[in-house]
Structures are given as C-alpha cells and as structure tokens.
Design a protein around this nucleic acid. Structure first.
Lengths: 229, 229
DNA sequence: TCAAAAGTGTTCTTATTACACCCATGG
DNA sequence: CCATGGGTGTAATAAGAACACTTTTGA
C-alpha cells in the first residue's frame, strides 16, 4: 500500500465541448481564462473533478454552472493524458461534448464573472492547453454521431422546420445536402411529428413546424432499429 | 495552489482488453488475480499508470509485459471513473482494446508468474472490479470498428485465407455471413494481395492465401477512401 | 408584383441480398 | 471414391444521387 502511495498524486479534469447552433452556424462555448496559466486565452470550460464526484456528474456540473441548464445531451469522447499537458502537475482530462439549444441558454452569475462567449467553430484557431486537439476530436465524434443517431434535434428548439434541421446537418457535416433527398429521408423515418403549425412573420412562404418523436424512436431502437442519414 | 492540493490525491490505471482469434472463436486474455482485492478472480490485465508515463504508453507497457509483443494494435475506448469503483482509493481507469495475432503470442516470465489465460468471450460471465462493463464496451467498440476499418487482419497471421477472415468477422459481429457476398466485397476493395500460394496439408481443396496491403490502404485512405463491410 | 424560401417526384445508378453447384485435396 | 471445405455468378431488390419548377407569404 505504501508502495502505491506514489500513484495517488494525480488529478483529473473534465473538459466539455459545448456545441450550439445559431443562424446556420455551429458554435462552441468558450471561456476567456482570468488566471494563469494561459491567462487571457480562450479555453474549453473545464474543471477538476472532486474526489467524491463521478466523471459524468462533474461534466454535468461544469455545464450547469456555466449555462444554467440541466439534463442536456452529454457524451464522453476521449481521455487526454500526456505527461506535461498541465503546468500544475499530472492532470489528465476526460473530454465530453454536449449539445444544447442556444435559445434556452442563460448566462448565470458564474458565467458573467468570467468571459463566456459562443464562437463559430470555423473561426477557432488557438486555445489554451491541448484544447485544440480536444475540440477536433469532439467535433469528429459529433460528425460521426449525427449520421447514426438522431442527435441533431438536441441543437434545435422543440419545434423546428425541415430547413433548420438540414442546416444543422450541413454545419456539422461541413457539406451541402440536397433538399429533396434530405426531406425524403427524414420523413421516411416517421420520427418527425407534423405539428400542423407554421412559422409566423416571415416574408416568404412559411415553413411547417415539426417535432422529433423521442418516445417512438426509443421504442423502435429497442427493436433493433438504426437511425441512419 | 494549496486549495488545489486536495485534488492531487487520485490515481489512474489502464485496462487493456486483449482480443485474439483462434479456432473460429474470439478470445480475451485474462489474468487470475493473486492478491486482494478480488483475489483469485479473473480480471482484465490492467495496471496503474506511472506519474511520468503517457496513457497510451502505459497501455502498451502492460501489453508488452504480458504478451512479449510490441507495436500491436491498441485503441483507447472509454474512461470509467465511478466513485468507489476501486477499494484502494479514487482510481479511474482508461479502457483500451488491443488486437493481437495469437500465434505470435509468447508467455513471458511476468505472465507465467500469475495465471494468464485466453477465454472465449462468450464464456466470460464474471470479472473483478467493474471489468464486465469495460469488456462489453470494448467489444461493442470493436464490433463497430470492424465494419468501418480493416482491423480484422490484426487478428490473423500475415498470410490468411478468405474463410479465416470471414470467421473473424462472424465471431466479432456475432452473425453468419454469406460466403459469396463476403468474398465479392473484400476482393472488390483491391486491398487483398493474392500470394499465389495455397494451404498445405489439409484434407480438402487447399485455400488460396492472401495478405492485406496496408500501404495501399493508407494511400487510398489519405485520398478519402472509406473501408466499409 | 417582386423577392425569398418552402415544398414536391421521377429517373438513373449503385449497392445489397439471396441463392446452388462443381472443384481439389487427403485419407 | 468419399468426405471436406474451397471457389464461383446472376438476378431481384433496395438505397442513394441527381435534378427544376410551382407555391405561399410579407413588403
């Protein structure tokens, strides 16, 4: 046991990559660091995990403190643990990504205190620590995920139009999709509920609103159904 | 900094799930624990990560100590960190899976010392710690991986027959595949080199031997090619 | 009446599935 | 000459890709 003491001198953190969607662009929530190391640089909003705290809970806590949101989509991606990646000691970090509905987002006191901002993912060129590769890994995972699971909806309000949904896919996959094929595919899943409502106040033909039928998806999934785009 | 001291009291381990393939069955390398906790129970061959050791290196080291092999296929899968998952303190573990060619496998002194055995994956019902869910998570990842990347070859000798390869896929995917369609698909990738050699000493028509063209795969992949089964 | 985005089907091409018989070898 | 696994092709079906015009609304 005393032999093992030397091992118990490490810490670990969680680093959630928080994705949002607005105006046709995929956004990432970053904080501007107020303290050393990497003072005044943009970083992912990570935190150390408490000794009595589960990893997923820690990621959820960081997310809640920052956004005021509970019960959002959160998924572990990869653990980064290079020796020397953190100036304070041996700290490995477990990366998560989260999908949130930006319109629900409220700045909490904690997030007002420091600088917290949405950044268009395509404009992020430099981050503190090893946060650039973490961001890339999480984005790649999201790219894969959205083709096999219906997670795109997590970025949209409950009621959305098909064009909005298509723009989510286009922003994440970084390529344009054919409107007719996209609609055909999505509607053929039978997982979109036509709400018989329309957009209001747009100066063009108003689009129909849909919602995603989570219950039906879960029921189909339990029977072996796979959502594929 | 003293405030942060309380965080630096944790340890982390790596737990590689080592897959092998023999006689048509997918195998996992397990050790029988010689010490408490979980003495005399089967477990994944994990170890604590040294303070000055990278995570991937640690997983490679454990693998090398146990099997005598270097440079084998190794991939990080997921990090398990529930409070209380380890009796000695806060220990989170980073799970890896590895694919090795069983015919290269040699017991090293380290592995002779303790009990080390290949177990047919379908027969494993109970493991020490939280190693059952770790095993399941790694197996699920391998199932996914083999459909999108040519990793099945890692489990076979350099020269193999198409039937052997098919059996690898069937063992991992846990379902039977059509012989003609499987061969058509694999040969259409143009990534198998026909060695113009045949099996020797089998009491039936001898099968042709193939090898996987890694260089060609990497070249195609860099041009955006996706291997899909 | 104009601008802007919504909505809608068909054809062509490609990939997937299902399926049965002859072949080469060792015993 | 028998038992064993190796090796091969085609037809039917399903999925994916390409493509252009009409509709509805607010200004």
């Amino acid at each position: 046991m005393s032999e093992e003491k030397k091992f118990f001198k490490s810490a670990f953190s969680v680093d959630p990559v928080i994705f949002g969607f607005d105006q046709g662009d995929l956004k990432v929530l970053l904080i501007k660091r107020g303290v050393q190391p990497f003072k005044d640089q943009w970083a992912l909003p990570g935190d150390l995990v408490y000794p009595n705290e589960d990893l997923d809970s820690a990621a959820g806590r960081v997310l809640g403190e920052l956004t005021g949101l509970k019960d959002v989509y959160l998924e572990q991606v990869h653990t980064f643990g290079k020796v020397g990646r953190h100036p304070l000691g041996r700290v490995i970090t477990i990366a998560y990504y989260s999908l949130i509905k930006i319109d629900n987002f409220e700045f909490t006191p904690a997030s007002l205190a420091s600088h917290v901002e949405w950044h268009d993912i395509s404009t992020i060129k430099e981050l503190a620590f090893d946060h650039m590769p973490i961001l890339k890994t999480c984005f790649d995972k999201l790219k894969w995920k959205i083709r096999s699971y219906p997670v795109g909806f997590e970025l949209l309000p409950k009621k959305f139009t098909l064009t909005e949904l298509q723009k989510v896919y286009e922003a994440i996959l970084e390529k344009e999709l054919d409107k007719r094929n996209f609609r055909k595919k999505l509607l053929s899943t039978k997982l979109l509920t036509d709400l018989n409502e329309s957009q209001k106040g747009v100066s063009h033909r108003p689009a129909k609103l849909y919602s995603f039928d989570t219950a039906k998806y879960e029921q189909l999934q339990s029977q072996g159904y796979n959502f594929e785009i």
